[in-house]
Design a protein around this nucleic acid. Structure first.
Length: 566
RNA sequence: CGGGGUGUAGCUCAGCCUGGCAGAGCGCUACGUUCGGGACGUAGAGGCCACAGGUUCAAAUCCUGUCACCCCGACCA
């Protein structure tokens, strides 16, 4: 490709809308054009990178035996009503109607669609297992798109779905997808760590996310430096600090003027925070829920939501608190009626805790579960934080942030039951398929790839995703010796199936070198009368900066060598 | 949806406080000189100062409202 013909405009300065390094470089290198928040166009150069990333994904999925298909992006809303997600996905779903007022959704993901497709083709256990995938646009009305390509409203997802007869064979399908993911991210030059995850709104059991660790990520990860355990904060298990042991004492009411927070209360009473019990009020699917947890801990809302089997959970609004007569700052489950009480085991096991007296300015001392109050549900809802002890080995957990690149999980029969993906087993019995689900965000991979591969000058593409294999800077391109050498170089590249980006513009050398650094092809070849005098082209490795003169005939092998080195 | 910030040329920004001709650098066009790390000269083109309303003799500037974009949070594969 000749740069004189390429529709590309690089920018010396990044537009002020960009904050993330990848976003700045995407705009400066002219790979994308902003349409609106979370909506981007790809330019010819940017689109080549997307296609290369997709091809890596396709290669590795195909290698596992997965089969590529194509679903409509416009889904009849009935499918979503069948699964219940027309309701539970809420406003994230883009909805529309046709001229006859039939309802549709723009697919935000395709469990329903893929299940429907499978249901039309799977009849017998002999048809299983099978894994289907597609690389297709998803639409989500996100509350806040962000970070350039990190969170989009319209984006490309590779979504794969496995259909098995049993949970045991699902393990193999899941493992195959997992292994493919490890290879995909490695090939694309994105370092990832697999972490245990919550399976979220889609439902399901075992689940892992592939996270690119970066301070700019939106996910919080807890990692154990001792045993390697890593989990999303919403899923992370830990061992809370032990409670103090004591013999139960009689409950006693004390005045605690203006002591509303746990920290205030503990300081006022001269005790540790773990000797108090904290009350938090939630609204779960509209119903009030009272959560009791030891004062030194916080509530993990995802764990709470799962424990309650709720679709939606939020902190109780003030109006509801007032209506129910709850005394914020002095609340406890002692004498509480009229709502469900959920207790973390820490609040149940500890004795002689200080807790609210349900009267402004008063607390009880020596509150004990079983004697003074009783939980309707005792379940772990404590949030893991940095420094908490790893549940497996006791080492303090470390907090990291990261970007979710991919997600694999064991779905089970949720969708095969609601959409009706069934097979006849050996004994002629009709059963739902056991499903797995595996997603990768393509644009987000591009963003992470740039985050992980750049310097102050610009992008440094891993060879496997670079839009062109090499960038040829032509200087004094009107001189005959250069014209001839360029033709030779292009011919040898073509026969070796290498794609060259040739800067044949009449600009100054400085501009061309700056653009070559910004655009980040792994190899740069400078072709000029001077280089020819020295015996060929000047070869420069973008990543290492190493420079050498190679003869024209050796240019292709130099490019290949640099590519194989990564 | 809550909190914070920003909207002036294609990009980065000044001007706004204290109302009075619409500005700079980069980029773009033409010509000339340069020609291995964002060169130089000359001449140009390019603006509904986000939008709407108000105050005023006069509004980019003051007031009110709306919208868009960015960041944090909530939420979300």
């Amino acid at each position: 490709m000749r740069m004189s013909k390429l529709m590309l405009k690089t920018l010396r300065e990044a537009p002020s809308e960009a904050e993330l390094e990848s976003h700045k470089l995407l705009l400066r290198a002219g790979l994308v054009t902003t349409f609106a928040a979370g909506l981007y166009a790809f330019t010819p150069l940017g689109w080549r990178v997307i296609r290369r990333i997709e091809q890596i994904i396709r290669d590795e999925m195909d290698a596992t035996g997965a089969q590529e298909v194509r679903l409509p992006e416009l889904n009849p809303i009935e499918l979503w009503e069948q699964s219940g997600r027309a309701e539970t996905m809420g406003q994230t779903l883009f909805r529309l109607a046709d001229r006859k007022e039939r309802g549709f959704v723009l697919g935000p993901t395709h469990e329903e669609g893929m299940s429907f497709l499978a249901s039309r083709h799977i009849q017998s256990y002999r048809d299983l297992p099978v894994t289907l995938y597609q690389i297709e646009t998803k639409f989500r009305d996100e509350q806040r798109p962000r970070g350039g390509l990190v969170r989009l409203r319209e984006f490309t997802m590779k979504d794969a779905y496995s259909f098995d007869t049993t949970w045991e064979t699902l393990d193999a399908s899941y493992a195959a997808a997992y292994d493919a993911y490890v290879r995909i991210f490695a090939r694309a030059g994105i370092p990832v760590v697999p972490v245990a995850a919550d399976s979220g709104a889609i439902g399901g059991k075992e689940s892992q996310e592939f996270i690119y660790l970066t301070e700019d990520g939106e996910d919080e990860i807890l990692q154990c430096p001792g045993c390697g355990y890593a989990a999303n904060a919403e899923k992370a298990e830990f061992t809370p600090p032990p409670a103090l042991h004591a013999e139960p004492l009689p409950m006693e009411k004390v005045a605690t003027p203006n002591q509303r927070t746990i920290a205030d209360l503990a300081a006022f009473l001269g005790i540790e925070e773990r000797q108090t019990v904290k009350a938090v009020f939630y609204k779960a699917d509209g119903q009030p829920v009272f959560v009791a947890i030891r004062g030194d801990l916080d509530v993990n809302e995802v764990k709470l939501k799962n424990a309650l089997k709720a679709q939606d959970i939020e902190v109780m609004d003030e109006a509801m608190v007032k209506r129910l007569g709850l005394v914020a700052g002095s609340a406890s489950a002692v004498g509480l009626t009229g709502m469900k009480v959920v207790a973390d085991p820490t609040a149940v096991e500890a004795v002689n805790l200080a807790g609210g007296a349900n009267e402004d300015g008063f607390h009880y001392l020596n509150v004990n579960h079983g004697r003074d109050w009783k939980a309707d549900l005792i379940t772990t809802v404590a949030l893991a934080r940095g420094g908490d002890a790893c549940a497996r080995c006791g080492t303090p957990l470390e907090v990291r942030r990261g970007m979710e690149m991919g997600h694999v999980f064991k779905l089970g029969t949720l969708y095969s039951e609601s959409i009706g993906v069934q097979y006849l087993d050996e004994s002629g019995e009709r059963k739902p398929c056991v499903m797995g689900c595996y997603g990768i965000g393509v644009e987000r991979m591009l963003a992470a790839c740039i985050e992980a591969n750049h310097d102050e000058q610009g992008i440094i593409w891993p060879a496997a995703v670079a839009p062109y294999d090499a960038h040829v800077v032509v200087l004094n391109g009107d001189q005959e010796s250069v014209v001839g050498a360029l033709a030779e170089l292009e011919a040898s590249a073509t026969s070796a199936r290498l794609a060259l980006l040739v800067d044949d513009r009449p600009d100054s050398a400085g501009i061309k070198f700056k653009d070559a650094d910004l655009l980040g092809m792994p190899s740069r070849l400078t072709l000029s009368p001077r280089s020819l005098e020295k015996g060929g082209v000047e070869f420069r490795n973008r990543r290492s900066g190493e420079t050498s003169i190679v003869p024209l005939a050796g240019a292709v092998s130099a490019i290949l060598e640099a590519a194989s080195a990564g």
